[in-house]
Design a binder for these strands. Structure first.
Length: 275
DNA sequence: AACAAGACCTGCATGC
DNA sequence: TGCATGCAGGTCTTGT
């Protein structure tokens, strides 16, 4: 489920409950998610203080005072919940962390595409899951020159290129569709065919799409904290994603949103204004 | 090397 | 109601 904005929202929600607190108890309720958990994970977490929570792409990084970092990926269906009163574990609650501040952090993931691992904080960027990630779209190393260079000679559709985490890290199916709609770029356009001008317009649009979603997530955090403690799951309204057969929202366009498959993934777009 | 397709796993909506 | 089908926001592996 989560792309960069949702992961950032989850990180921000977890931060006040985790950062600066000690993991008093770690309950690892199954041996693996997508991959086996690291050896002795419960023991390596228990009694350790979370120095800070960071995010890299769609990964949450919890730096511990043991010089290890807990890497968390939510996969497609991973959810984080914060509880203050202890209740019995529910279905698909796989990892439960009790914090010295009184919060209970629950990782719930029905499909188990998520992952957790521990590695030395000093070398976390070299970890297998992070090593080949491209630049952060909201960071300083992502700009039009970079993206144009990476697109050069690419025969891949722009939709697929933006999903390639080695080119840009953190976008997923939803925000790629949204960004291409805002940029009026047809998703089937080959990445290498985009003009320098078009790429230079696309870059700030990608940033804005993500920042808008983070902002929406932030404003939803309070609401969720008050209800069930679930972080990062908020109702967005998207311009194209999930809007097959509804009218294009661009004021001067009378087109209709359509869906088709690219590399096995649904692409939503307006064939009228996205050229 | 570049790209597409398959695989992983469960839950949900839909249609018969 | 039950059952089959297709779909889901990620990403690693396999195949062309």
């Amino acid at each position: 489920m989560p792309e960069l904005p949702e992961v950032e929202t989850v990180r921000r929600g977890l931060e006040p409950a985790m950062a600066g607190f000690v993991i008093t108890q770690a309950d690892i309720r199954r041996p693996d998610l997508r991959w086996p958990f690291p050896a002795n994970m419960a023991a390596r977490l228990s009694g350790k203080k979370v120095e800070r929570l960071r995010r890299r792409s769609k990964y949450i990084l919890a730096d511990l005072d043991s010089r290890e970092t807990l890497i968390i990926h939510l996969g497609m269906s991973g959810r984080m919940l914060i509880e203050t009163i202890q209740t019995a574990p529910e279905k698909h609650d796989h990892v439960i962390l009790d914090m010295s501040g009184g919060a209970r952090i629950i990782f719930n993931d029905a499909r188990r595409f998520g992952a957790m691992d521990l590695c030395d904080t000093d070398s976390v960027e070299q970890h297998k899951m992070l090593a080949s990630l491209g630049p952060e779209p909201l960071g300083n190393h992502f700009d039009a020159d970079y993206l144009f260079a990476r697109f050069k000679n690419r025969k891949m559709p722009i939709k697929s290129a933006l999903l390639d985490q080695r080119i840009i890290a953190g976008l997923g199916n939803i925000y790629v569709c949204e960004a291409l709609w805002r940029a009026k770029i047809a998703p089937q356009t080959l990445a290498g065919d985009l003009s320098e001008q078009t790429v230079s317009e696309l870059v700030p649009i990608i940033r804005t799409v993500l920042q808008d979603a983070i902002k929406a997530g932030g404003s939803s955090l309070k609401d969720y904290r008050q209800t069930n403690g679930e972080l990062g799951y908020f109702q967005h309204s998207f311009a194209v994603y999930g809007r097959e057969n509804s009218p294009c929202q661009r004021p001067d366009c009378d087109g209709e949103i359509q869906r088709f498959a690219q590399s096995g993934r649904s692409t939503f777009h307006c064939p009228t204004c996205q050229q």
